[in-house]
């Protein structure tokens, strides 16, 4: 089906009136989110979209919005929908952007086509089919945007924060914060081993205060790292073992008997200082 002559006619002749109508509809709709988007932004988006729609309707095939004439329209919708997904709009609030254009277009069609009922019916039908397609496309793009948001959140959830810090000459600490389920855990542990070599440290404290659950996978990572560090001449102390974690580890059957463990990082540091021959003494003025 080629373009609809009436639709092409009204969007050229009444572009600014339709824009004004449409913006009014959007501002009055209960799906409006003033908290998420300013009126100026809404006006700008609407103006840009209507301009692109006019161009596509003039040359494009209304039945097939996947064609090249529709590319700018699709790109703009994808962009708007994804942005709204990230801003926190719901799917229907986002789709309203397209659907709310129906009423202003129908009103103009009625005004222009006049009393030719068949022509009016055709024009309204084609317009409604067109906007439904674009609305669906909006919903799909919104969905993609949501999936991106979720994927990013999952990424963040799996992230392990892992700076190796030098606490003292010969003493390194790795405060683990996060979950140890991802493949990155391996890298973090290797990183610690590399730093042991670089600094010639003889003691590394692995603090698991920030690790919510210690299961067999976490235990295995810890045991492997301790064993590898030992081969390189460094002892590891595992700190941050809270009472509930200690009990759970015992029930799991994980053997930590060959590993020095401490309740807190401070306890571990004291042990590490003793072992490296350093001591903490009160300053002479306070004795």
């Amino acid at each position: 089906m080629p373009t609809d002559p009436w639709l092409a006619h009204i969007v050229s002749k009444f572009e600014s009136e339709i824009l004004a109508d449409w913006i009014q509809h959007q501002l009055a709709a209960d799906t409006l989110r003033r908290d998420l988007m300013s009126e100026a932004e809404l006006v700008e988006q609407s103006r840009a979209f209507l301009g692109l729609l006019r161009e596509a309707v003039q040359k494009g095939n209304l039945a097939d919005t996947t064609g090249p004439e529709w590319t700018p329209v699709r790109e703009m919708l994808a962009c708007v929908s994804r942005a709204r997904a990230k801003q926190g709009f719901t799917a229907s609030e986002t789709a309203t952007f397209v659907f709310s254009l129906k009423q202003p277009l129908f009103a103009r069609l009625r005004g222009e086509v006049g009393t030719d009922v068949d022509a009016l019916g055709d024009a309204v039908w084609r317009t409604t089919v067109l906007l439904d397609k674009l609305g669906l496309y909006t919903a799909e793009s919104y969905q993609k945007g949501r999936e991106e948001v979720i994927a990013r959140q999952q990424q963040e959830m799996m992230e392990l924060s892992t700076p190796v810090v030098k606490l003292w000459e010969g003493i390194l600490a790795l405060p683990l914060i996060g979950t140890l389920d991802s493949a990155r855990t391996q890298i973090v542990m290797e990183n610690l081993l590399e730093r042991i070599v670089e600094t010639g440290a003889s003691i590394a404290i692995i603090d698991i205060t920030g690790v919510p659950t210690v299961d067999t996978l976490v235990a295995q990572h810890l045991l492997k790292t301790v064993a590898a560090a030992r081969l390189m001449g460094a002892d590891c102390i595992i700190s941050g073992i809270r009472p509930q974690i200690a009990q759970t580890i015992v029930h799991l059957g994980v053997e930590l008997t060959n590993v020095i463990t401490k309740a807190t990082l401070a306890d571990a540091f004291t042990v590490a200082l003793e072992r490296t021959g350093a001591t903490i003494a009160p300053r002479s003025g306070h004795v």
Binding site: D215, Q244, Q247, T248, H251, L252
Partner: peptide, 17 residues
């Protein structure tokens, strides 16, 4: 209690994995 939460969560982690 916290200990029991931890035990359940850890068991769940094992079986899920």
């Amino acid at each position: 209690r916290l200990v029991d939460q931890t035990k359940l969560v850890t068991a769940a982690s094992e079986l899920a994995r």
